[in-house]
Design a binder for these strands. Structure first.
Length: 407
DNA sequence: CCTCCACAGGAAGCGCAGGAGT
DNA sequence: ACTCCTGCGCTTCCTGTGGAGG
């Protein structure tokens, strides 16, 4: 009866997973199939540092989930190991520019990586010029080849200045130097750059093409071997997952996510085999997950509108016959707006948006695929739209209720 | 047929934050 | 560091549309 039994049950609960970590989205595998050429190219560029030359800057771009980050990290890790063995002065710092989206933040992150022993607040509050001098000073004094791997480079606001700084620094450095490996998934981004920045950053450039279904299949098979128990995944499941991902974007990350969810679903159902049915269900689950992430990023009042729709949908249990026949879960545009006004007040949000803007929100929610609307045909007075929720009402309500309460 | 209803969605304009220009 | 400008979220006002009802 005790919790010990519950723990025991959890502990010994059978699972299709051998090592779940190996199939998490952020796990970097140590083999990258179909990227031999790309790995070789990156290696060739950075290998200049082994000969004491400054590697040229490299710009990598390709769609999400094509292995750009994994490839760059893999090469750099290997390079560091090799350099360590040969006692060469080569360092690299990986920085994701989504969170470090300004020159200052990049410099700061960089210094903290290089001087981890300094107290937390070191460098905080110093000017960008000071940070820059400190970094250049480090490179000069130690004659290091420093390679900055800047992921999601297009997120940096003052990129021109950042690139200019690193380029200029190399003129002041007789030995050692700073190189940049830039990574972006925005293919148009390169053309919008300042010409000087562009020529500096794109001394070398590479494109990572999307994977096709066949390649995704191989990638998944290999991951399955590491992450799942032998024979725990049917080959049909792998085929379906790779087909879905290939059709959607050639994105290895969604393919992997798909199998992860499918595995979890098999565990929940307490079966020891992952089948294509699990993958099929996982697909909608992954889609819902993406939608849920999307929901939390919506503007406040758009969330309120969506919440209202969810609440009304739940409240209207089966079929309501107030004035004729209403199909299940279908709401009038007008009644939703009225209820939304009340909801907004209930949660202490000052003045609700106008009815006009509310309609704009409805259009947006439809575009996101969270609701569908249909024109009111004969049988209803006036011209209005019927609104129907396309995602799990209870889930939406729970998530948003928690959020409103927290705020 | 005309009118009212209950909306849809276009046009203009307003206040604000952030980027460009100086 | 200052103003200027622009884009964005939103309101106000308005015209359009399809059915209900007299």
């Amino acid at each position: 009866m005790s919790l010990q039994n519950a723990f025991e049950a959890e502990f010994t609960k059978p699972s299709v997973f051998l090592d779940r970590n190996k199939i998490m989205p952020h796990y970097t595998p140590n083999v990258l199939p179909f990227r031999e050429k790309e790995l070789g190219d990156i290696t060739r560029v950075v290998a200049a540092a082994l000969r004491g030359q400054r590697p040229e800057n490299l710009f990598i771009y390709g769609k999400p989930g094509t292995g750009k980050t994994s490839a760059a990290r893999h090469v750099m890790d290997e390079l560091s190991v090799f350099a360590g063995k040969k006692e060469l002065k080569i360092r690299h710092v990986y920085i994701n520019c989504r969170t470090h989206n300004k020159k200052y933040k990049v410099l700061l992150k960089c210094l903290r990586e290089i001087f981890p022993s300094e107290p937390d607040k070191a460098f905080q509050g110093y000017s960008a010029a000071y940070l820059y001098e400190k970094l250049v000073g480090f490179v000069r004094d130690t004659e290091t080849h420093l390679i900055l791997v800047l992921d999601e480079l297009d997120k940096v606001r003052d990129l021109d200045e950042l690139i200019y700084s690193t380029t200029r620094s190399n003129d002041e450095l007789p030995k050692g130097g700073i190189s940049v490996i830039g990574i972006s998934n925005n293919l148009l981004f390169k053309d919008a750059l300042d010409p000087r920045t562009k020529s500096s950053l794109c001394q070398q450039e590479m494109i990572f093409p999307p994977y096709n279904a066949e390649q995704l299949h191989t990638i998944l098979e290999q991951r399955v071997q590491e992450a799942f128990h032998p024979n725990a995944v049917e080959s049909g499941a792998i085929s379906l997952a790779s087909a879905i991902a290939a059709q959607e974007s050639g994105d290895a990350r969604t393919a992997i996510k798909l199998l992860l969810r499918a595995g979890e679903m098999a565990d929940e159902a307490r079966v020891n085999k992952v089948t294509d049915v699990h993958v099929k269900n996982a697909r909608s689950s992954v889609e819902q997950e993406i939608i849920m992430e999307h929901v939390t990023l919506l503007p406040e009042h758009e969330k309120l509108v969506l919440y209202t729709i969810a609440a009304l949908t739940l409240q209207r249990k089966p079929i309501q016959t107030l004035s004729g026949t209403k199909a299940e879960g279908v709401l009038y545009s007008g009644e939703v707006y009225e209820e939304y006004e009340r909801t907004a007040k209930k949660f202490k949000f000052n003045d609700p948006v106008s009815a006009r803007w509310y309609r704009e929100y409805i259009n947006q929610l439809e575009m996101y695929g969270m609701i569908v609307t249909t024109q009111s045909g004969p049988g209803v007075k006036g011209q209005t739209r019927f609104i129907k929720l396309k995602v799990d009402a209870q889930k939406i309500k729970d998530v948003l209720e928690k959020e409103f309460a927290g705020a």
